[in-house]
Design a binder for these strands. Structure first.
Lengths: 191, 191
DNA sequence: CGGACATAGTTCGGAACCGCAAGTATTGTG
DNA sequence: CACAATACTTGCGGTTCCGAACTATGTCCG
């Protein structure tokens, strides 16, 4: 896992490369370290607790969300898990095929679908989550208890801010010009 | 972007679900907020600055790494970008096909390949990065300058810790039993 | 020299993933 | 009842992604 460049060296190289360009280094370091940390943590968890249960990261997150909230409508599951509805359909199918998750119709609104863990899923999470949490402790080892709290709190503020203002910001940014379509994706039926 | 549950509500639900189970909540909140923040930030950046240049997140990260370091051997690019070398082969191919990146053989060691931005790639990054940085400022808006520094520093400590001790930890965890193979992946040629 | 081992990169199988369009079904509304 | 809105699914085209197998190259050592 030890890399060619440490995170400190990278920041120094950025300094050198961008010496002339005026930019906001503190925010850059904060944001890029969030992603570095997220990637490193995810890889650690995938290759320790998750691999032994043959779960992908996304599969685990979906199970976790449903576990925490009990029954949950699919649209909210997708949102909480940070994936699109289309992706959720596929992931849920995979988890169903392994007997961990089940899909129920909504009793009063026929359009809705609700996800719930099966007993096997409940058992798996009851077994897995403590192990997962142990690794969260391991990766947080360099933080004092008060630091971990402060870290969580700052990140929470960022997420809240994005949820509140992100969409408007994106609208402002692109002004009149609509977003270009993606290179890929389904095409209209014809011309 | 506004969700069914706020991050605070989720933490409360976790508290309720796991009231009886002894676990380490501070570290759990810290780690899960890292991923929440990373996802939210990534989606914001993808749907603002990156979309307008038709770049994926990973494509941008690879360009960024090569941009910062100048010429770079592919193995280090993969590591810095946080992806596997197999993935890098494909991503680099995509970026090459768009004329942003070029691939050079190493003069003395025939096994090595080196990546470098094309002039078009340099120009794109020179144009794109300031915009990217502006959004980093936007997402960091709720943080004081000193907080952003402290956030970056704590995350840096976590990454360093994982780089130093992650592999050993994973070895200790699995003890004798080797990691099970993934469900997917290439199989041996026969039997 | 030559075989054993190590290292770097590519290929490939299977899955995840997005965004969008289109389709299905249901609910709400005038 | 027509019509719009909502929720989910399906399918498309493309990308990303991992990790094991494979290929090519370099190195070590007898």
């Amino acid at each position: 896992m030890s890399g060619h460049h440490t995170i400190a060296e990278t920041e120094k190289a950025v300094q050198a490369k961008l010496g002339a360009v005026p930019l906001h280094r503190e925010q850059m370091a904060a944001v890029s370290n969030i992603h570095r940390a997220a990637t490193a943590i995810r890889q650690h968890l995938e290759n320790s607790v998750l691999r032994t249960s043959d779960l992908t990261w996304t599969g685990f997150v979906v199970l976790w969300v449903v576990w925490i909230w009990g029954e949950m409508e699919t649209r909210y599951v997708a949102e909480e898990a940070g994936i699109s509805k289309g992706t959720l359909t596929g992931v849920a199918k995979t988890l169903q095929s392994r007997g961990l998750l089940e899909r129920l119709g909504h009793p009063t609104d026929g359009r809705l679908a609700v996800l719930r863990l099966t007993p096997e899923g409940e058992e798996l999470m009851g077994d897995l989550f403590p192990k997962f949490n142990e690794e969260e402790v391991f990766v947080s080892d360099p933080l004092e208890s008060s630091e971990a709290q402060s870290l969580a709190e700052m990140l929470r503020r960022m997420v809240t801010h994005l949820e509140a203002n992100g969409e408007q910001r994106r609208l402002d940014l692109r002004g009149d010009t609509p977003l270009p379509p993606r290179r890929s994706g389904r095409r209209a039926k014809h011309g």
